[in-house]
Nucleic acid binder design. Structure first.
Lengths: 259, 259
DNA sequence: GCCTCAAATTGGTTGAACCAGTCCGAACCT
DNA sequence: AGGTTCGGACTGGTTCAACCAATTTGAGGC
């Protein structure tokens, strides 16, 4: 086990730093599934801390379904590709060593975002209240202005805000709770890699149509407008990223990719 | 704070029991957002344990975004309706005191399941490998047989298995990780309340069509078949549950329901 | 009335000891 | 020789008693 010591960020506490260090080492396939971690006592010594603090880090790994901790038996690394949850997407996209898998995961995340949007706009068109509509109108106006002035930074920021408002308008705990995890990843991704936010000339039309459908309680219209628009976006994204995808696949055959 | 002591399940450790107790008390609106919990020392005394063990429970609440813990400031209850994540869906459906909100959340969960399915079948139709197809064929055969013999128990069990296999066939970390959390809730819900699993006479046709579309790499066909079938299911579910929904709304106006 | 600073309160970290499952191997019996 | 038993050497789980560090509070000074 020749690790480097984790940097302890100013805002983080010690347990969190250790968690992040182990998380990285798992997500970049450094610690392989099935491997047993050293005992809590050894790990605590390695990170120059005590068992209690170290155990907090282990609890976090366990909660994220990255390790299995069993009394008397130790800590075993799980196969995160099978067992993890969405909260690992952000760290994974930052750590992954397989470019092809990374790009594919990224595209899938954008696809999941659209699924969340479809669900939200459908529900919003049934349940939105006047104050929801007002908030949506405000944000749509903002985006229309951002689009005209081509303010990339603002477009991205308000994109996340708009999705959030749509989820709120859906008045669905399920949608809200899915969005909380998914949008945190999405926000981090898109603000790091701004070129991932692409648009189509029909963007203003789409926003206006969506707003109309929601305020007129037309779920089918809202959903179909969303599907149509994001189908275009997907095509752009695919042509944008497919070269990277192929390049990665050649240079790094990676996991379960062998055909 | 007059709580009852939590039952310590045989399989659970102490920290988990405390977590579950506090979780319940939050999800049933017993502990209201903004409230400050007693200090770790007091809580530990109340649960007749020590600070370290109690802190493990707090870490779990924090991880689930149900409380905010800040050094020197204490532990504050968050508004779980805004901040929680999908993993709280299961406990919430068991604890919620507002029947209308409960039924609505339940319907939304089933809707989210369909969104997950749409995404998975679309990807599966692009990425499924021979062994995925084989596994799907096996499960489809099983379901066809279960449907003929009207084996409700098996239908429900293999329904979850089939969804799982579709997610696997999608070869998408994003889909897999979303499914891990969502299906855990879904499995628990549907096995507790078996009447929630409804079918349509076209079930066998749908399964066969889906399988054909996936093996012939026809994403659009797979998605549209899924949409069509589950639209029927949704109608049945809605007529099944809407009376409960209305009854709940009348007897318990509940939160943010006032119009 | 406002500012300052120290005390009280909170969570964060530490180390040691002990309890409780699990595993493995030596000793034992057959 | 083979199988069984049991004890010791792991593992994580719990407890205790301090101390460190961030925040809040309020008494005192200006």
């Amino acid at each position: 086990m020749g690790h480097s010591m984790p940097e302890r960020n100013k805002n983080d506490n010690l347990a969190l730093s250790i968690y992040e260090d182990l998380l990285k080492r798992i997500l970049c396939d450094d610690l392989k599934p099935g491997t047993r971690l050293p005992s809590e006592r050894e790990l605590a010594a390695h990170y120059q801390t005590n068992r209690n603090t170290l155990r907090e880090a282990l609890r976090k790994l366990e909660h994220a379904h990255l390790v299995s901790v069993r009394h008397g038996q130790g800590v075993t690394i799980l196969d995160f590709r099978k067992t993890a949850t969405v909260e690992c997407l952000g760290p994974f996209l930052m750590q992954a060593r397989n470019p092809s898998e990374q790009i594919r995961t990224l595209l899938d995340l954008l696809m999941a975002r659209v699924q969340l949007l479809e669900m939200s706009v459908a529900l919003a068109a049934q349940r939105a209240k006047p104050e929801d509509i007002e908030q949506l109108e405000r944000l749509v106006e903002l985006q229309l202005h951002n689009f005209e002035t081509d303010d990339r930074e603002a477009l991205i920021h308000d994109d996340v805000e708009l999705i959030n408002a749509l989820v709120d308008a859906a008045h669905s705990l399920t949608a809200r709770w899915i969005a909380n995890t998914l949008l945190e990843v999405y926000r981090g991704l898109i603000s790091r890699t701004q070129s991932l936010w692409v648009s189509d000339p029909s963007f203003p039309d789409y926003l206006r149509c969506l707003l109309r459908c929601i305020s007129e309680n037309d779920p089918e219209g809202a959903v179909s407008a969303t599907r149509t628009y994001y189908a275009k976006i997907d095509r752009v994204l695919l042509t944008l990223l497919s070269p990277l995808l192929e390049a990665g696949r050649k240079s790094n055959p990676g996991h379960s990719e062998a055909v």
